[in-house]
């Protein structure tokens, strides 16, 4: 499995990662190497094997639909890069 520079650009875009042009060949190289390495899984016979998503056989726990948290907007927004009147600011999305 060999990824081209264009493949890397596509993956980076899907992952919302800005990757500089000069780093693209190195990522193409590294990622190809990783994919080649994991390709050895192909040799394993997994016919009729159930996929495992979670180590323990347990189901999702449910809880009462009750309010357990208090509003802490100001505290949480102390970590925000840009806020105004309790709102998170981002560049204009809708013209």
């Amino acid at each position: 499995m060999s990824l081209t520079p264009d493949d890397v650009r596509t993956i980076a875009r899907l992952a919302r990662l800005a990757v500089s042009e000069q780093d693209i060949p190195r990522y193409a190289n590294n990622l190809s190497r990783i994919l080649d390495f994991v390709a050895q899984l192909d040799k394993a016979d997994t016919t009729s094997v159930a996929p495992m998503a979670h180590p323990l056989d347990m189901s999702q726990r449910l809880r009462e639909d009750a309010v357990t948290e208090s509003g802490q907007r100001e505290l949480f927004q102390k970590n925000a890069p840009q806020v105004e009147a309790g709102l998170y600011l981002v560049p204009k999305v809708i013209e």
Binding site: I34, L41, D42, A44, V49, P51, M52, A53
Partner: peptide, 25 residues
């Protein structure tokens, strides 16, 4: 990027689903 690739359309079965099965083994 590795994670994004193995979960992307067309590769999910070959990588992620396969790995979930080898995890069972």
């Amino acid at each position: 990027m590795t994670g994004t690739y193995v979960l992307s359309a067309g590769y999910y079965d070959a990588y992620y689903l396969k790995a979930q099965k080898t995890r069972t083994l």
